[in-house]
Write a protein that binds this DNA or RNA. Structure first.
Lengths: 199, 199
DNA sequence: TGGCAAATAATTATCTATAAAAGGAAGTAC
DNA sequence: GTACTTCCTTTTATAGATAATTATTTGCCA
């Protein structure tokens, strides 16, 4: 489990970008970051490249990296992509859904409802969505969905953080219920509605 | 336009992986590649990371990179993802489709039909698919589709290269025709069928 | 002969140093 | 006063060297 330094830096920076701690458009200077992490700039470069791969930063050659902007058009785009891909994943997932997997998902649902801060809720919300989709067994699809969730999370932090309050998510419960009764189309349509309005 | 060295290496390696010149499972050794390109290993590392981001290679920390395998299950997965995302893109694209864009697409279609080798056909086929989808104006979606096309291309090279022969693609023509007459649902269903069977 | 262990080789990850490019400031010509 | 040029600073990109980790081989003992 020897996590590489670049890994650590990538995790830290992506978290900062997601929460808005690093604002859109902000420059990411290699040696400043290197100083912060008490390392050289080489692993920083690696981490920045990974940020770029996940759409969190953009590089202009010889001019450095900047945190990507998240305009409303892209937020809508991400939502439509999530609708398309999460529907697909859920249809496969529902077929493979075991009682065990359902219990795991319901546990994640409860954890999410019980979160007592926005960052905690956001993390647990992602875990819930992943839990209901993981049984699809399509790794590439799940990976793509994860990236979209990261973009969604950025938007959630930017626009909902102040207004957030603890609440029971009825959509989540309804999805679990539909999965339990093997009603795939109901589960899918609730999920689609949920994605479209939760953002 | 100062292309960085890492750029060049990435292009070359990805091309080799797509065409099967670098086989699945093959190790990608940093200093060997560095020697081949007469450079140091640092830009090589960058290129390898980009390969990983596009799903063409996988890294195990401290153990190096390997070209990813392309098992039949993943091929099916990619097809289903393409169906989901290209449908979405086409629906937006059809709405924004200008006569000019249609002409460009039809030109791409003819070029594709006239290709006289498998690699040429593959490149032009990708250009055609991109041409009919680009007007959707959703950059993130197009980018995701591009990555899926790369995976599809690997499969095409692996399984169709010997059997390839020049032919007129009637699906392509039918899609253009449907777009011309603004029949979005017809265009979409032809595209879906096309993706499912062309692979 | 087979299996374990230490040493060796190969390879990756990181660091330090150098080169190249871009951006900005100051000075001069008009 | 404005625009252009040149120099200086900042920052990124690459190279070469070092450290750390893994794989392999060889030698020893049962």
């Amino acid at each position: 489990m020897t996590a590489t330094i670049a890994d650590t830096i990538y995790q830290a920076l992506s978290q900062k970008i997601i929460t808005g701690d690093l604002a859109a458009g902000e420059k990411l200077r290699q040696d400043h970051i290197a100083r912060d992490f008490e390392t050289s700039h080489v692993p920083v470069r690696e981490a920045l490249l990974r940020l770029e791969a996940h759409g969190l930063a953009k590089s202009e050659p010889r001019k450095g990296m900047r945190v990507t902007a998240l305009d409303p058009a892209e937020v809508r785009e991400v939502i439509e992509m999530r609708v398309a891909l999460e529907s697909l994943a859920l249809q496969h997932s529902a077929q493979n859904m075991t009682p065990t997997a359902l219990k795991v998902a319901d546990r994640a649902r409860k954890d999410c409802d019980e979160a007592d801060s926005m960052p905690q809720w956001e993390a647990r919300n992602r875990i819930f969505h992943r839990a209901i989709l993981t049984p699809c067994g399509l790794p590439r699809l799940l990976h793509a969905i994860d990236d979209l969730h990261i973009a969604s999370a950025r938007h959630l932090f930017a626009h909902w953080r102040p207004k957030w309050m603890q609440r029971i998510d009825t959509d989540h419960a309804a999805i679990i219920q539909a999965l339990k009764s093997k009603d795939v189309s109901a589960a899918t349509s609730i999920l689609v509605r949920h994605i479209r309005r939760a953002n």
